[in-house]
Amino acid sequence: MRVDDIDHDSGIGFTGAPRAVSSVTTPAPTDANDVEVLDYRFSLANERTFLAWIRTALGLLAGGVAVQTLAEQFSTSSLRRATAGGCALLALLIAAVAHRHWRRVEAAMRRGDPLPGSAMVPLLAIGVIAIATIATVAVMVA
């Protein structure tokens, strides 16, 4: 493939769903059971997003382990356990939801459908707010 053969358009439509890029994809499927071959750049971008969520989950898990083992200054062990457990639980939820979301986005892109919404951002925001609140109370009480 030559550089001149590549469509340098982003391939993203107004709906956020990837459009077919003629120089990289195959023609539209003729049978309802056929699935259009996806431009690999969209698939790789979806995978990078999934891996970013997994890194976030690993960071939360490491933070939970660190709080449980290193935060001896908390006056009550229940606040330490709540903070560490909250981190670990949020890490578990993010990892599970990230995989499900990756699969749904991949399938939607292959079908040419609009991309599905995600509960990841609100889940992470609410979880971090809850954990930060518990940690703040633990620091103030200590």
Rank of each mutant, 00 (worst) to 15 (best):
W102N: 02
D31L: 03
A98K: 10
I6A: 12
A130Y: 08
L90N: 05
A28I: 00
A32K: 02
L61T: 01
A62V: 13
L90Q: 03
L51P: 09
W53D: 12
R80L: 12
T56G: 04
P27K: 01
D113S: 08
T136D: 01
Y40N: 06
A88T: 03
A95F: 10
P116A: 07
H99C: 03
H99D: 03
A66S: 00
F14M: 09
S10Y: 03
P116N: 10
A130R: 03
D113M: 01
R110I: 09
D5Q: 06
F42R: 07
L79G: 07
A119T: 03
V21G: 02
H101G: 06
I126W: 00
A130H: 09
N33G: 04
I12C: 07
G63L: 01
D113V: 11
A138N: 01
P18R: 00
D39M: 11
A96W: 04
F14C: 10
A91K: 05
S77L: 08
V65F: 08
I131R: 02
A62T: 10
T76W: 13
P29V: 02
P114R: 10
A88N: 07
G11V: 09
D34T: 08
L79H: 11
H101V: 08
A62I: 01
G11N: 03
G16A: 02
V24M: 12
Q73P: 01
I12Q: 05
A57C: 02
A98Y: 04
A45Y: 11
E36Q: 15
G13C: 10
A66P: 05
A20M: 14
E72K: 10
F14Q: 02
T133S: 14
Y40S: 07
S10W: 08
R104C: 13
G11R: 06
H99F: 04
P27R: 01
A17Y: 07
A88H: 10
S43E: 14
I126Y: 14
D31C: 07
R80M: 04
G59N: 11
V65I: 06
R81Q: 15
T69C: 10
S78D: 15
S10I: 08
R80E: 10
T83Y: 00
R80P: 04
V3W: 09
A84V: 12
T15D: 14
